[in-house]
């Protein structure tokens, strides 16, 4: 099921400037910095790698699966996908944010590139699910989709790094460059998993990130919503 869609559509979807409100989030970096767990560049690299291998892979696999199902017109599979994704996000705060970002992405994409599948997604679909449906509507493949969401996972946190840490932006992008082959590998893994049943999609966890998100919600002063 390779999408015939071109690379340009993929770039459109993975560009942080897509107006869907992602800039309000640090991908868990701000809470990690506040808690003193990320203080320098090597911490940041470990944080980003850990995030890609856990939350990144889950989001990639679920978006690839949503893309796959949307391409086949099997939207009846979406509720099961949503339930499986809920089960992989212990923090109620992170589940809420994922659905909030999903609504925002659908709001934006419904205006940018309308498609009937958006209406079938329920009141507040998870962001990776909406991403997958958007990718299918642009005729992209599940692997493309996985790559886009892995890229976005890194880009959001990297952009936030400049605001919550003392960083040299070149060093931050050097980390991203070192991670490029990892992202390719994870995208392949996610796309393979997307061919199988929803219940078998990857489920790696990072419990401390979930706990940190709950604390962050209660913080009096914060730059980022998560």
């Amino acid at each position: 099921m390779d999408g015939a869609g071109g690379s340009a559509a993929l770039l459109l979807l993975s560009d942080g400037r897509l107006p869907a409100g992602g800039y309000a989030h640090s991908g868990g970096l701000e809470p990690a910095v506040t808690a003193g767990r990320v203080t320098d560049m090597s911490d940041l690299e470990r944080f980003l790698v850990g995030r890609e291998e856990t939350a990144g892979l889950i989001a990639a696999a679920f978006s690839a699966a949503a893309c796959e199902r949307s391409r086949r017109g099997e939207l009846f599979e979406i509720p099961a996908l949503e339930a499986e994704l809920d089960a992989r996000i212990p923090s109620s705060e992170l589940r809420r944010i994922s659905r909030e970002l999903g609504r925002q992405l659908r709001r934006a994409m419904s205006a940018v590139h309308p498609h009937p599948h958006y209406d079938a997604l329920g009141a507040a679909p998870h962001q990776p699910v909406v991403m997958g449906v958007a990718a299918a509507s642009l005729d992209l493949s599940p692997r493309d989709m996985a790559l886009a969401i892995l890229h976005e996972t890194n880009a959001d946190a990297a952009a936030a790094a400049a605001k919550v840490l003392r960083v040299d932006p070149f060093d931050v992008h050097a980390i991203l460059a070192r991670m490029a082959t990892r992202l390719d590998r994870l995208a392949g893994e996610a796309a393979r998993a997307a061919q199988g049943p929803s219940a078998d999609l990857p489920a790696p966890g990072s419990p401390l990130a979930d706990i940190a998100a709950e604390h962050h919600r209660r913080a009096d002063v914060r730059l980022f919503a998560s």
């Binding site: 409100g21 925002q104 709001r107």
Partner: peptide, 11 residues
Amino acid sequence: AIRDDVTMNLM
């Protein structure tokens, strides 16, 4: 939030 990417406010 009020100019380039108004999605959050619009919603």
